[in-house]
Simulated assay, not measured.
Amino acid sequence: MSTWNIRKAGVEDLEEVVRLRRELMRIFGGLTDANAAAWEVATRRYLSTALPGGRFHVWLAFMEGKAVACSGLVPFERPPAANHLSGLEGYILNMYTAPAWRGRGISRALMKELMAFAREAGLARLWLHASEEGRQLYEKLGFAPNPIALEWTPEGA
């Protein structure tokens, strides 16, 4: 059985990120042939500044030299709350594994990379909106339902 390699994406990976996001957006994001060209232009423009600027972090999983899965994190800051003094949080999005590569633990490995990064970056809370397919994985990793999303708080945060 092949193993995968995971690494944080940079601008040099822009086309791989666009390709995987395109697959995801066709399933969940309303992307159609009619709006795909404009979406790709806007996505490339966003990624070309957001990836190097740290506004969007992406991890890619490679199998047999090809990116087959991705995960994304948008860090942001809110005003401090009583139980969340730093205000630093992250929103997880674009969790996607190509169908042929599902069921091999790639999404779990991507999430663990993302969560380790969040701890190191001092993000006191991560949250996401889960598909029914993904919900079980996130809950096994410690995410708990709240009224609007699933949420995870690192130990000691």
Score class of each variant (00 low, 15 high):
residue 32 T to V: 09
residue 69 A to P: 00
residue 1 M to H: 12
residue 101 W to Y: 15
residue 34 A to S: 12
residue 91 Y to P: 00
residue 64 E to D: 15
residue 61 A to R: 04
residue 96 Y to N: 03
residue 88 L to M: 10
residue 79 P to R: 01
residue 122 G to S: 06
residue 126 L to I: 06
residue 122 G to E: 04
residue 144 A to G: 03
residue 95 M to T: 04
residue 7 R to S: 14
residue 26 R to K: 14
residue 91 Y to R: 08
residue 6 I to H: 01
residue 87 G to R: 08
residue 11 V to N: 10
residue 143 F to A: 14
residue 26 R to V: 11
residue 49 T to H: 05
residue 105 G to P: 06
residue 104 R to V: 00
residue 123 L to Y: 13
residue 83 N to W: 03
residue 96 Y to I: 03
residue 16 E to D: 15
residue 56 F to G: 02
residue 81 A to S: 02
residue 102 R to V: 13
residue 131 S to W: 07
residue 119 R to M: 06
residue 142 G to Q: 12
residue 135 R to K: 15
residue 117 F to P: 02
residue 101 W to I: 00
residue 28 F to M: 01
residue 50 A to L: 07
residue 147 P to Y: 09
residue 30 G to M: 08
residue 93 L to E: 11
residue 2 S to C: 10
residue 19 R to K: 06
residue 117 F to Y: 15
residue 5 N to T: 14
residue 51 L to I: 13
residue 136 Q to I: 04
residue 97 T to N: 04
residue 39 W to Y: 14
residue 127 W to D: 13
residue 72 G to H: 04
residue 54 G to M: 07
residue 81 A to K: 09
residue 141 L to P: 04
residue 74 V to T: 13
residue 59 W to A: 12
residue 123 L to A: 06
residue 38 A to L: 11
residue 55 R to L: 11
residue 28 F to Y: 14
residue 1 M to D: 12
residue 146 N to H: 05
residue 116 A to S: 13
residue 122 G to C: 09
residue 121 A to Y: 00
residue 12 E to A: 15
residue 141 L to N: 06
residue 141 L to T: 10
residue 42 A to N: 15
residue 46 Y to T: 09
residue 17 V to W: 08
residue 154 P to Q: 14
residue 69 A to G: 10
residue 131 S to Y: 09
residue 106 I to F: 01
residue 30 G to I: 04
residue 153 T to V: 15
residue 51 L to S: 04
residue 70 C to F: 00
residue 139 E to S: 08
residue 145 P to L: 07
residue 49 T to K: 04
residue 90 G to W: 09
residue 153 T to A: 08
residue 103 G to D: 07
residue 28 F to G: 14
residue 154 P to K: 13
residue 123 L to S: 02
residue 143 F to H: 13
residue 120 E to G: 04
residue 23 E to V: 03
residue 153 T to M: 12
residue 90 G to L: 08
residue 120 E to M: 00
residue 5 N to G: 07
residue 31 L to A: 09
residue 102 R to A: 14
residue 39 W to D: 13
residue 33 D to A: 15
residue 109 A to P: 02
residue 19 R to I: 03
residue 22 R to E: 11
residue 36 A to H: 02
residue 116 A to E: 12
residue 135 R to P: 01
residue 95 M to H: 01
residue 57 H to I: 09
residue 33 D to P: 03
residue 45 R to F: 06
residue 82 A to C: 04
residue 31 L to N: 10
residue 102 R to E: 08
residue 35 N to R: 06
residue 24 L to W: 12
residue 28 F to Q: 10
residue 155 E to G: 09
residue 68 V to R: 03
residue 109 A to C: 11
residue 9 A to T: 07
residue 86 S to K: 00
residue 104 R to N: 08
residue 86 S to N: 01
residue 38 A to Y: 00
residue 141 L to C: 05
residue 139 E to F: 02
residue 101 W to R: 12
residue 89 E to C: 13
residue 95 M to L: 07
residue 22 R to Y: 02
residue 117 F to A: 13
residue 16 E to T: 10
residue 49 T to R: 07
residue 67 A to N: 07
residue 127 W to A: 10
residue 29 G to D: 06
residue 27 I to F: 00
residue 17 V to G: 05
residue 94 N to I: 00
residue 37 A to L: 10
residue 108 R to H: 13
residue 74 V to F: 05
